[in-house]
Simulated assay, not measured.
Amino acid sequence: MRYYEDIDVGETHEFGEYHVTKAEIIEFAEQYDPQPFHTDEAAAEDSAFGELVASGWHTAAMCMRLLVDGPLYNRASMGARGVDELRWKRPVRPGDTLSIRSEVIDKRVSESDPERGYVDSLLEGITQDGDVVISWIGLGMIARRNPPEE
């Protein structure tokens, strides 16, 4: 298990492989983001994208899964305080394969709860061609191995 003390600013991880299918794009969109360019191939052809594309929220969810299976898998995660600077940079299309890259950009001990530390990480979702499709700064909370006794 990796605790706050084991994590260094600047550490990076590249992880995962998630193959995106047309059926999954449509299924997610029909339930959560039913805009025509996510649910209907013919309508999508007349959109700004010119073809069916995944919802940005679907892209975020797929990358979150890769994050949990990757860098967070063996980390003493206590959840997150939120995300900053969420950006959808390019559309994700059926047949794309996503992976993630994360970099720890800041860390500090919580002033209100010395049992946890804050670890902020830049996450990027990347296609098989190396294109960044999404990015955000995750504001993670990580348990400390040896918090000071009160």
Rank of each mutant, 00 (worst) to 15 (best):
D46I: 08
D46N: 09
D46G: 11
D46A: 11
D46E: 13
S47G: 13
S47M: 12
S47Y: 14
S47N: 09
S47D: 14
S47A: 14
A48T: 15
F49P: 03
F49N: 07
F49L: 10
F49Y: 14
G50H: 13
G50T: 14
E51Y: 07
E51C: 11
E51Q: 12
E51P: 04
E51T: 10
E51N: 08
L52R: 06
L52T: 13
L52V: 11
V53W: 06
A54W: 10
A54T: 08
A54R: 01
S55V: 12
S55R: 02
S55D: 10
S55G: 06
W57F: 15
H58E: 12
H58Y: 13
H58P: 05
H58K: 08
A60V: 14
A60G: 15
A60E: 14
A61L: 04
A61R: 00
A61Q: 03
M62P: 03
M62V: 09
C63G: 01
C63S: 02
M64C: 05
R65C: 06
R65N: 08
R65K: 09
L66M: 04
L66H: 02
L66P: 02
L66Y: 06
L66D: 05
L67P: 00
V68A: 13
V68W: 10
D69G: 07
D69Y: 05
D69N: 10
G70V: 05
G70Y: 01
G70Q: 02
G70W: 00
G70A: 07
P71D: 06
P71K: 01
P71I: 03
L72H: 02
L72D: 02
Y73S: 07
Y73H: 09
Y73M: 11
Y73D: 09
Y73N: 07
N74T: 15
N74H: 15
R75E: 07
A76E: 09
A76T: 06
A76I: 05
A76S: 09
S77M: 01
S77Y: 00
M78W: 04
M78F: 04
G79M: 01
G79R: 00
G79N: 00
A80V: 01
A80L: 02
A80M: 01
R81E: 11
R81W: 07
G82I: 07
G82A: 04
G82Y: 10
V83G: 03
V83P: 01
V83K: 05
V83F: 08
